[in-house]
Structure formats: structure tokens, C-alpha cells
Amino acid sequence: MSDLEQLEAQGVAELATSSDEQSLIAWNQRWFGKTGLVPLALKKLTELPGPERKAYGQAVNKLKEILSAAFAKAQALAKERALELSIATEQLDPTLPGKPWESGSLHPATITMRRILAAFGELGYEVYHSREVEDDETNFGMLNMPPHHPARDMWDTFHTTDPGLVLRTHTSPGQIHAMRERAPNPLRVVLPGLVYRYEQITARSEIMFHQVEGLCLGENIGLTDLLGTLEAFIRRLFGPDRKVRVRSSYFPFTEPSIEVDMDCILCSAKGCPVCKRSGWLEILGAGMVHPVVLRNGGYDPDKHAGFAFGLGVERINMLLYGIEDIRAFWSGDLRFLRSF
């Protein structure tokens, strides 16, 4: 066995006993470091006579290759062993709570309002905003409720100290603003916003809530168009299988006036306290725009016709989310808001 062969055997043997990373580094240093055994062996080359040098050089290179390969293999093996060990020993408690990572949220009124506006947006309706402090004339008079009209009793009104100025009781005055801006063009608008009613604040009644009003005017718009539009909307919002019932009703600004019910989503129309045991939930008020209102908006009732509808967002949210106390909405209480 030549010196080099012996050296090779020694290197491989030492490597075999170096199983962890630390001893492998030491081995590498001992064999391949600046003064390591392999460089040392290479240095001997200069001491040899010329003719022997080539063969020796080749032999040293071979030694170097063999030991390097063996080292790489041993290193991979050591890594694999370390990984195996860590996998085998790393065990955490998956039932510990995660680190807090709280998300933000939108108010339920925003969430539902967006869904409503999106549903009507697909049907070609544009969002139109109008003021909340309104004059009596636009809130009532132009909507076919002259002063002392008995229908005014249907809306309990907040009056301001400025005579004739009220907090709008519904989004309907927006109809007048939109019509006057666009007459005599066809019109499809949805009017979202806050409205105010003079009420006692209880679990079921609030002084402030969101309404969405819709208005569609054209030359050939009839009651069946209203029914189709509202049916499409209800099914879009509450599911394709919803049944719709239409009841005759009264609003001064529409004629005919209707209320639209859907089968109760809470009791599957079997009758529960929310639907007053009737199996039906009141969702929308609607009707064909009254000729007086059309005229006040700048449209000619002989040429134009159209429908309007309105709904309360908080009422829908109470149904959708099973909210029993309407006061939660404006409480600003995070214990409620975190639900959304």
C-alpha cells in the first residue's frame, strides 16, 4: 500500500467516525485546510524528481477527488440525520391559540347597502345622493302631500328650529331632485342614505336609519315592470327560491301603491314571531309614480310613467343577521361590530 493509498484509507476511516456537523468541519479543516493533509501531500510533489511528478500528481488529485466526494456524501448524510432528528423532536401544541391577527370590518349597513346597490346597478340604476336636511316642500309637498295632508301622519317628523326645514323622513325627496336634474330623459336611479323619524328609541324603533329608494321612469313603464324588477331584486338578495307576495297599500306619492312581501326566511313561512305568524315578511314599499309627483319633477304624466320603491336597510339586516335590538347599529360597540 502506497503512502497515498494509506492516506486515503485513513481519511475515509476518520470520516466514518465524524457523524455530526462539528466533527465534519474539523475533518474538513484537518484534511483540506491550508495546512491540511491533502495540501501537504500535494506539497511533496516539489520534492519528487521530475519523472515521478506526473504520476504522483495524478494520484494526489485522485485522492483529493475521492475524499471530497466522501466528504460531500458524509455532509449530506449528516444534514439528513439532523433534519430527521429535528422533525422527530419538534412538537408544538396545536391547540394553543394563534397569535392575534385581527381584521378590520365594514359596518353591516355598508355591507348590505353595497349588495343592494350592486343588484340594482346590474339593472342599470345609477346611485344618486341628496341632502338629509330638507325643506318641507320637497320632503312632503312635492310628493303629493300638501300641508295638513293626513298622510303626513305616516311619518313622524323632526322639525328644525328653522321653519320649513326638516330632517328628511324618507329618501323620496331625492326623487324630486333627480327628476328635476334629468327631466325629460329616461331615468333609473337608486337613492341610498340616512333618514330620520321622530320616534322613541326602543329595541324595534330608531330615530335614524338607512333607506334605499329606487326610481325608474320611461315612456312605457308599467306595474308589471315594477313587479318583475322587485322580484329579481329579492331573489338576488335573498335567494332564487324566494316567493313574493304583493299587497295593495298606500303612499301619497305612488298610485297604485303596493307592499312587497317574501316568504319568511326565518321560519320557512311556517309562522314565527318575526313574520307575525303570517309566514310573510314585509320587504319593500313601492308603486307607480303619482302623476302629481311626475309633474313636480318636470315629467309629463301623459308621456311618461314609472315606478318607485323603497326599503329599509336596517330592517333587512335584522332579518339577515338575526339582530333583535335595532339599537345595536349605532352603538359603536365593538362587541357587536366584530360580528361582521
Binding site: 315612456e219 312605457n220 295593495s248
Partner: peptide, 24 residues
Amino acid sequence: VRLYGYGNLQPRLPAEAPPPPRVN
């Protein structure tokens, strides 16, 4: 209509094209 029954009217979507869409 009230006595004829709203339920007897066939709902439909407006046949008229909506006005050109405007974005708020």
C-alpha cells in the same frame, strides 16, 4: 288591479333600454 289580484299579473323586466350608465 287590487281586486283582479297582483298575483295574477305576470312580472316582467322593463323592455325599454336603461339610460346610458353613469357612475357615481
